[in-house]
Simulated scan of single mutants.
Amino acid sequence: MTSTQTSTEQGDACAHTPQPTLVFVHGFLDGAAAWDDVVAELGERAADAVCLDLQGMGARVAAPGPYSLDGFAEDVAGQVRRLDRPVVLVGHSMGAQIAELAAGLLEERVRALVLLTPVPLAGTGLPDEAMQPFHALGGHPEAQRALRRQLAAHLSDAGLEKLGRIGDPVEAASVGVFADLWNRGHALGAKESHFRGPTLILRGEVDPFVTAEVVANAVLPRFSSPAEASIAHAGHWPQVEQPKAVAGILDEFLLAAEATLRANTDAKGWTHAFAQKSSAAFAEAFANEIVLEASVLTHPVVGVEQVKAVMGTASTIYEALAFTRQAAEGPRTYLEWEAQAFGGEKLFGITILTRNDAGKIVRAAIHHRPLGVALKFSVELGQRLKGRVDASHFLGGA
């Protein structure tokens, strides 16, 4: 494993940032150094990034086989577990197959998945004659460089030589093994992906190997609502050909993914508290100075003890409650919901949660409709909280 920081430095960086660590997985005949330019372009976003070398390639070229996609994935998963923090897996080409399999092993530890010029997990299924040029690369630096130039669109001489020097030391006998692995793929490639989190599929616009058709037919359909983008003037190695463009799209995707994950987390926590119908369950998420505003309140309720009493009691009035949509922007999460109370009367609304830097909710604004049911809810809430919360907060109160 190589990294932009030592393991101690990585741990210190993680303690000061809520962002998951970026873990980069290289492709066929490449190594960790293939990600250098993208990591540099990402700057602070990749301050604790980890770039892995797979067995038999890169700095681990001497690592013995047998080699398999499952073995590579288990190795990646083991290294991620040792990091002991959430990650975003970024896999290139054959590394995309491995990253997806590792994500399935790591489950919730993986916050997002990025597949760059991804070889389909099911493999490419090329016939033997088409695979011969790949098998012949072992021990032939000129052939390796010629193939890289053929599959790239904007690869500088320096970039070509860098990739070539990474691939040159790979054992000749291993080259064909690695090629057959990505070509034959994995049985899970015939099924819907096990990874359900935010996913970005990114390809070089003029990649002659992982074409737009390959992505559309063999990659995208396996994921739920994946983001998709292409890099202009890039072939099969966009991270070397156009690192600034790759970093820009990756950063934009991660911002959106973080907002989605935050909204999902808030929705789960809020839903759990309502399901528990417990004041204590709400209090876990609240800052001491929390302010609650609602269309069923005449004026805000302030302070964790008072707000948790209101929310815990309100949860007992609902006969059913379902969150239907969520979104997040900056410190705010927006939750749309539908509910039922008073023997089947319908309520609809939007809840806006604002969190502080520590992740605690400092303001909750709950908007109910229709007006008639909201007014009825206010009266009922006031009656149930009589003697515990000032009656002036509720309709009909003193």
Score class of each variant (00 low, 15 high):
residue 239 Q to M: 08
residue 223 F to V: 07
residue 61 V to W: 01
residue 180 D to Q: 13
residue 377 F to N: 00
residue 366 I to Q: 00
residue 361 I to V: 15
residue 237 W to K: 07
residue 54 L to S: 01
residue 325 R to C: 07
residue 251 D to F: 04
residue 225 S to A: 14
residue 207 D to R: 15
residue 193 S to Y: 09
residue 63 A to E: 14
residue 286 F to W: 07
residue 75 D to T: 07
residue 301 V to G: 05
residue 208 P to G: 07
residue 103 A to K: 11
residue 275 A to I: 07
residue 93 S to D: 04
residue 13 A to F: 11
residue 164 G to A: 11
residue 133 P to D: 06
residue 338 E to K: 04
residue 143 A to P: 15
residue 12 D to K: 15
residue 145 R to N: 05
residue 94 M to S: 05
residue 298 T to K: 09
residue 275 A to Q: 11
residue 192 E to C: 15
residue 186 H to T: 04
residue 162 K to G: 13
residue 230 S to V: 05
residue 210 V to F: 10
residue 233 H to P: 14
residue 343 G to R: 03
residue 236 H to D: 01
residue 313 T to Y: 04
residue 223 F to S: 06
residue 81 R to W: 03
residue 275 A to G: 12
residue 296 V to K: 00
residue 218 A to V: 05
residue 2 T to E: 13
residue 262 R to T: 04
residue 45 R to C: 12
residue 121 L to E: 01
residue 253 F to E: 01
residue 112 A to L: 08
residue 41 E to Y: 03
residue 394 F to W: 05
residue 397 G to V: 07
residue 57 M to T: 01
residue 185 G to N: 03
residue 170 V to P: 11
residue 183 N to D: 03
residue 326 Q to A: 14
residue 30 D to K: 14
residue 383 Q to C: 06
residue 214 V to N: 11
residue 104 G to S: 13
residue 273 A to G: 05
residue 164 G to P: 06
residue 75 D to K: 10
residue 124 T to L: 15
residue 181 L to G: 12
residue 118 P to H: 02
residue 70 D to F: 09
residue 111 R to T: 03
residue 249 I to T: 12
residue 370 P to H: 13
residue 84 D to G: 09
residue 260 T to G: 12
residue 58 G to C: 04
residue 29 L to K: 12
residue 218 A to Y: 14
residue 54 L to R: 01
residue 295 S to V: 00
residue 303 G to Y: 03
residue 185 G to P: 08
residue 75 D to Q: 12
residue 203 R to Q: 08
residue 344 G to R: 01
residue 137 L to V: 15
residue 228 E to V: 13
residue 225 S to Y: 12
residue 382 G to Y: 04
residue 248 G to D: 09
residue 141 P to C: 12
residue 194 H to L: 14
residue 358 A to C: 10
residue 57 M to N: 04
residue 75 D to R: 05
residue 146 A to L: 05
residue 194 H to S: 15
residue 320 A to L: 11
residue 48 D to F: 15
residue 349 G to N: 00
residue 207 D to I: 10
residue 127 P to Q: 00
residue 35 W to H: 12
residue 332 R to I: 00
